[in-house]
């Protein structure tokens, strides 16, 4: 690990990677908390995979059509927002078709991406880095985009805290309080879309879902409010990405997969730990609740 820290001081690409990981952690903690609160993990998965269509199309236009300015991440942003809005509208209009829409967006997005990448000469290795992440390839340009997206989603997640909490807890009551439930649902899906793009650079689109759910589940166990979950989850993710980066650098392993395996391991440990404490707590708490008179 000390090797890694020294290397960070020497190599700009490691600094960029570290910065990307930390930036993504904040967005992931905030938006992941809403994903778990509103139970839209499957939608997040669908959006994540559809992003390949945007990445592939942008890469194709960039190299074949020579649109130099079109960074693949821009394509990812467009594809993710498009997927979020399509899934959102379907789920609001025809709730029973939501699953079908997600599956369709999920697979069609990937198919579009695969075709574009196949038609793009000399960039086959891109496919792997989109799917499984390549945080070491983060450039200053993409770092700026990541920072901008980060700012947007975190600000939205905090400004509309009460509205998002209300639609997550009790949609009917929120509607009666004059909250535009549909608009906030679509807004939340768009926030998920932007966060997915952030995370794709870190762990790749296949593994986004793990980072968006597991740390939140760990933090949620320890929190009494969504705000606490957000802060705690962001810290956990920041630690995971940093340690994961260090381990992958020292052991020469792919960074994305290393981060995800660390995440999975941490989740497993807390799961076992929680069930152990619950068993201890039940034998104690059971007696306490018996003594309490019913209100």
């Amino acid at each position: 690990m000390s090797d890694f820290l020294r290397a960070v001081g020497e190599h700009a690409f490691l600094q960029y990677a570290l910065a990307a990981g930390l930036l993504a952690s904040v967005a992931c903690g905030v938006v992941g908390s809403w994903v778990s609160a509103r139970r839209i993990t499957y939608i997040a998965g669908g959006i994540a995979h559809s992003v390949l269509g945007g990445l592939g199309a942008a890469r194709y236009l960039q190299t074949v059509m020579e649109w130099e300015w079109l960074h693949p991440l821009y394509g990812a942003v467009v594809a993710a927002l498009l997927a979020a809005l399509v899934i959102g509208f379907v789920s609001l209009r025809w709730r029973e078709s939501e699953d079908t829409a997600i599956s369709a967006i999920w697979a069609i997005g990937m198919a579009v991406g695969v075709l574009f990448i196949a038609r793009t000469p000399g960039y086959a290795e891109d496919l792997m880095s989109y799917l499984f992440g390549n945080i070491l390839m983060v450039t200053p340009g993409s770092l700026w985009l990541i920072a901008a997206l980060d700012l947007v989603v975190v600000a939205l997640g905090i400004i509309f805290y009460q509205q998002l909490l209300a639609i997550s807890f009790d949609e009917e009551f929120a509607r009666m309080r004059g909250i535009n439930v549909e608009a906030f649902y679509l807004l939340l899906l768009c926030m998920v879309a932007l966060t997915v793009v952030l995370l794709v650079t870190v762990v790749g689109l296949v593994m986004v879902i793990a980072l968006l759910t597991l740390p939140i589940a760990i933090a949620g166990r320890l929190s009494r409010s969504i705000a606490q979950t957000m802060v705690l989850a962001a810290i956990i993710i920041a630690l995971l990405t940093t340690v994961g980066l260090g381990v992958s650098y020292s052991a020469n392993l792919p960074a994305g997969a290393t981060i995800i395996l660390l995440t999975g391991a941490l989740y497993l440990i807390t799961l076992v730990g929680a069930s152990f404490f619950r068993r201890v707590g039940r034998s104690r708490g059971g007696q306490a609740s018996q003594q309490q008179p019913p209100r």
Partner: peptide, 19 residues
């Protein structure tokens, strides 16, 4: 409701003040 949603009693009641 989502039973795993971390939300306090105070949070729930504060929803009454929305809008």
């Amino acid at each position: 409701y989502n039973r795993r949603l971390p939300i306090t009693v105070g949070d729930v009641v504060m929803m009454g003040r929305l809008a």
